[in-house]
């Protein structure tokens, strides 16, 4: 069961990474990051269950809290950018580049 959980965590992480690498829409990048965070959480819980120690579960609580903070600020930035540039593609947002 634990090995299966670790395998699922790996597959979900790679799927999230593929979304971040291949998609150009900022909101889809968010979803990819969330998918990767969830895969990491699953791995934490699986290792915690294997070791019989609770520290992994504590780490998951912190991950969830930090993920919600990240989503809040990130979406605020995304709303500002979308209102100003009328695009959701990260390739069109190049004013920070030279």
């Amino acid at each position: 069961m634990i090995f299966l959980a670790l395998l699922l965590g790996l597959l979900l992480f790679v799927l999230g990474l593929a979304v971040v690498m291949l998609r150009r829409s900022a909101i889809l990048l968010f979803l990819g990051i969330e998918l990767m965070l969830n895969a990491a959480n699953l791995t934490f819980v699986a290792f915690s269950s294997a070791n019989g120690a609770l520290d992994g579960q504590i780490a998951v609580i912190f991950t969830i809290a930090i993920a919600s903070a990240e989503v809040g600020v990130g979406l605020a930035i995304f709303i500002v950018l979308f209102r100003r540039f009328k695009t959701q593609s990260v390739d069109d947002l190049r004013i920070l580049r030279w």
Binding site: A5, V60, L75
Partner: peptide
């Protein structure tokens, strides 16, 4: 099923209920 019932509820309430609803 992995023995973390509290995290299961936190996952549902905070992640699905708050973070994803925000998105």
């Amino acid at each position: 099923l992995l023995g973390a019932p509290f995290l299961a509820m936190v996952q549902l309430i905070v992640y699905a209920g708050a973070t994803l609803v925000l998105i």
